[in-house]
Structure formats: C-alpha cells, structure tokens
Design a protein around this nucleic acid. Sequence first.
DNA 1: TAGTGGTCTAGACCACGGG
DNA 2: CCGTGGTCTAGACCACTAT
Lengths: 242, 242
Amino acid sequence: MASIYQTIFSDIEAKILAGEWQPGSRIPIEQDLVVQYGCSRMTVSKALSALVTRGMVVRRRKTGSFVALPQIDRTVMDIQDISTAAELAGHSHGHRILTRKIERLDAGDAKLLSEPVGAEILRLQCLHIVDGRPNALERRIIMLDLVPLAREEKFATMPPAKWLLEQVPWTKARHVIRAISADQATARLLETERGEACLNLVRQTWQNGRTVTYVEITHPGDRFQFAGCFQPAATWPTAGDR
Amino acid sequence: MASIYQTIFSDIEAKILAGEWQPGSRIPIEQDLVVQYGCSRMTVSKALSALVTRGMVVRRRKTGSFVALPQIDRTVMDIQDISTAAELAGHSHGHRILTRKIERLDAGDAKLLSEPVGAEILRLQCLHIVDGRPNALERRIIMLDLVPLAREEKFATMPPAKWLLEQVPWTKARHVIRAISADQATARLLETERGEACLNLVRQTWQNGRTVTYVEITHPGDRFQFAGCFQPAATWPTAGDR
DNA sequence: TAGTGGTCTAGACCACGGG
DNA sequence: CCGTGGTCTAGACCACTAT
C-alpha cells in the first residue's frame, strides 16, 4: 500500500510524463490537492518537494507550482572504484603497487592540487589487473596530514581507492575524463601500443575544502569504458523503484 | 537565518564529517533530538530524511538511526548538451547538419537499440563547431513514432539534442564513454589525424521504456573533456546551496 | 495587499523488528 | 511486548512576490 504522498507523487509524475501537463503549465495549488486527496497540506507538500528534487516541478511563492521546463541535457554517471566495478561485473581483480614514496609536494603538483608546496604526501603508482590483463594504471597522491594512517599502510590486500574510503569520508569530488594517447611508459605497463587511445580519469577528492587525494587513472581504450544508467533520483521511493 | 531542520542537518553532518560520530555508530533517537533542539519530531524527521538522501545516515525502526557505513567509490558526473556546455563556458557554438535521412531500422541498429527492425527513424549526422574548430561529430537516430515532429524539423537553428529536450521528456538514459582512435572519415571531419585518441560518448534515452533517441558523439581528445563536480544531493535545500 | 509556498507544532496511530 | 521510525493531521504564522 502506497502512502498518500507517494500516491500524489506518482499521479503528478504520470501526468507530466504523459504530456497531459505540459512544461511550464501550472500544477493545482496545494490547497486544491489537499481537497482532491483529502489529506493535509503537509502531505501534499512532501510529494511536491520530492518532485522538485526530481527536477520535474518548480514551486514559486505567490504564483504556484509548475511543471519544470525541459532540463538541459545533463545526466549523471556513476564512476566506481575499479575493484568494486570489476567484482560487480563478475571479473577477477588484482593490483600491484609499483611505487610507494613519502614526499613533499613540489611546485607543479602543488598548483595542480591547490595545496601548499611542501605538504607531506604519499605518492603511489598502482597497476590494476582484471581477468589477467592490465586494465588501469593509477597514479595517486594522498595528503598525509588528513590521512596519517596512510603513512604505514602497504595496500597489500586492498587497493588504495577502497582503503581510503574506509578511512576518510569525502564531501566533494571533481572528475575529469579525457582521451589521451599512451606514452611509452604507460603503454609498456598496460601492455599495449604506444599511441593507443586511452581513457584518462582524474579525480580529486575533498573533505571540507581540504584535499584528501588526487588520482589519475589511465585505462587502455580497448579494455575499458564507463557505463551508467540514470534516472533522476527521487526523494522518496516511487512506484517503479519497489 | 537557517531553518531548524537545516540547523539539525548541518550539526549532524558536521559531527559525522569531523569523525566525532564514527560510521556505524548510533545517532541520538528522534525524541532526544526533539528535546535537544526544542522542536517537534517532524522537524527532526525532516533533517534525518535529508541526511538519508545524502547517504550519510541510515534509519532503522526499533534500533534507531546510524551513521552510514562508507560508500562504495561511486560518484557522479554531469554530462551536458554540447551547445549548453559551450555557452556556459563562454565559447561560441555552431553546428552543421551533414546528413538527414528518414529510414527504417536495419537489423544491426535494431539490435543495438533493442527496437524492432523496420521502425521508422530519422538518421542524423551533425558536426559541432566550438570557437571555430570542429569539436564533436554526432551520429544520431531518432525514433519517429515517439517524436513525429522530427519528420519535418531541419535543426537549422537548434542542435538536435536541445531540440529533442523541448519535445520529449526522458525518464531514463544510459551512457557509455570510451576512448577510441579516429578512423579516416572521422578524422577528416574533426580536422585531426587518423589514429588520434578521441572521446566517444554513446547515449540512449528512453521515455517509459521506449527509446527516444540513440546518439554517438565523438570528440577529438585534444579538444574536449568531461569535467564534473559532485556533492551528494540533499533532499531539502541546505544552507550551502543558497 | 493578497495569494501562495515554507516552515513548524503537538499531538496521533501504525509498522516494523529485536528481545 | 515495546522501542523506534513512518506517516499523517489540522491547524498556525511567516516570507516572498505579483499586482
């Protein structure tokens, strides 16, 4: 049995999706919905809030609530940790730490990370192996002041991405995805040809404005892709999600 | 002035981020928070719901609410329409329709789209120009039964992606991002070299289980990247969002 | 000024699930 | 059983904004 606010949510969603209520058109005011559904105004409000979260409705004081105008063509992509993604897809996954050095941030990297020169870091290089073949080369910087435990961690059993998540919650992440040609060193490690198209992901992760880690992951183009399905997230569960 | 539920939200969020409340540990029960903040239980509940949406808290009947365990390393990436993205970044944007044919779906494409062979489609090829240089080659299929207006549309002023959004709301999208080497035809159109690393995005969009459009966009690797910042979305607006 | 959403209250009953 | 969250009510006052 669906709750009242879920019913209201679904009804309005259905009308919008069916085109019955066109973008920009007005939705009945809350008081009318209160009467129509025989519920309190707060229950109506909860349903409308969920529709706002989903980007289907906008609410304006004095003028009422409206079907949202068509969204810009933005959608959303999950980017998962390699080992988790591999596991979910039913592939074997291993990793090998190639480099592990405690250093101080030099001028170039400091600029890249927007962190002070001289800050203590752990620099890692790690090769990910999926189904027996190199699948990703990971170059990572971990800020040691925020993650002091990394100083002693050898990442023998758990890859750095996974380990970090158990240590430090993040509040913000920035991703950049590019296509690059493999240079000689990368090609050798990934067992591919120099010049091969590679998918290159850079991720910087913050906690409250402080950088936790900066990582660049390079995948051979013929062995990796990002894939993701997206449906706008509802505040509360909708019929289709159950 | 922050509302009460925003205050509660921020306070709890801060304690979790500071590590004061560790993952898995119990959060005060709602009644205690009611007393602590001198507000009604519903206000507390609203704050906790927002924390659940943000993935920082889990609530269980009988046992209480807890700090969520660390998330898997998934994060989220906005993928915008090229013209919109270019505008936002302050670049000029133009497009040129190279191909525009009404066809019926052949076996290969039908399998790709999981749509029936013979369905009527509009096949487009469109070159996007940003700051005077080719920036993307778009190959698109539009299902004409769902978007009949496309039959007459010439896409002279508005690129297909933007036009489609004004015609058809979507309920689900799937993305695949790969790195590929430019073949000769693509390289010529994008004014780059054959073999150049290119970023390749495939997007299929549905409305209630029916395909609306399928599009493959190829960007030269040296002229394009996806970039996105992410913070988990809150159910209700938080102080930082205003 | 008046219409509308934004927030809040002080209760209530129900649903779930551990003991 | 009974503690806890899930949902709901019937109001209330305030904030914003179009007119």
